[in-house]
Amino acid sequence: MTAVFLYDGDCAFCSSCARFVEKRIPTRADVAAWQFRDIAALGLTEAEVDAAVQWVELDDAGRPDGRPVLAGPAAIAALLRDAGGVWRPMGALLRLRPVLAVAWPLYRWVARNRDKMPGGTAACALPQAQRDSARETD
């Protein structure tokens, strides 16, 4: 494992996308729900992982290697580049500033509407704090 790609495991749409990655995109990264990782040890906050997918490069001991953490479309670009093959050029394209400039608003729109996406549920629309409090009252 050279990196970890974190997604929101409480979101059905995000989990569906992660399953697609695991089945179809041969990345060396650990594709994991952030709820099952020690995000503080990875240098991340709950607000960051709740806002966007994250890509964290790791050293041989499994700790962040000091490179900047990538979020949203930049994280997806890193995952695609890491996968190689036909995915590498797509990741390289997504990494370009003009493409990222368009990708970020699109990513934010999808994130705001993930409950309406295929596989999404009403719980996908709630911020993490509200999902946590709903669990506590169940």
Rank of each mutant, 00 (worst) to 15 (best):
P73F: 03
L42W: 09
G85L: 08
G9P: 13
P73M: 03
A40I: 14
T2W: 09
N113E: 08
W34T: 04
A129W: 14
P89G: 08
L100F: 08
A75Q: 00
L96Y: 08
L96N: 10
A29K: 00
P127S: 13
F5I: 06
L58N: 02
V56E: 01
D8K: 15
G119T: 04
P118T: 05
F20G: 07
P89W: 10
W87V: 04
L80P: 01
A103M: 10
P68Q: 07
L94G: 02
E48H: 10
E48Y: 07
D132C: 09
A101I: 07
L42V: 13
M117W: 06
R114V: 08
W87A: 05
P98A: 07
A74S: 10
C11L: 07
Q128Y: 14
Q35H: 15
R88V: 09
R131D: 02
P73A: 12
A111V: 07
G9N: 06
R67M: 09
P118R: 05
F36K: 11
L80Q: 02
A125R: 07
V102N: 05
L70I: 03
D10Y: 15
S16N: 12
W55D: 01
L94M: 14
L58W: 01
A61G: 04
R112Q: 07
A75I: 00
A61K: 07
Y107S: 02
L44Y: 11
A92T: 10
A78V: 10
W34C: 04
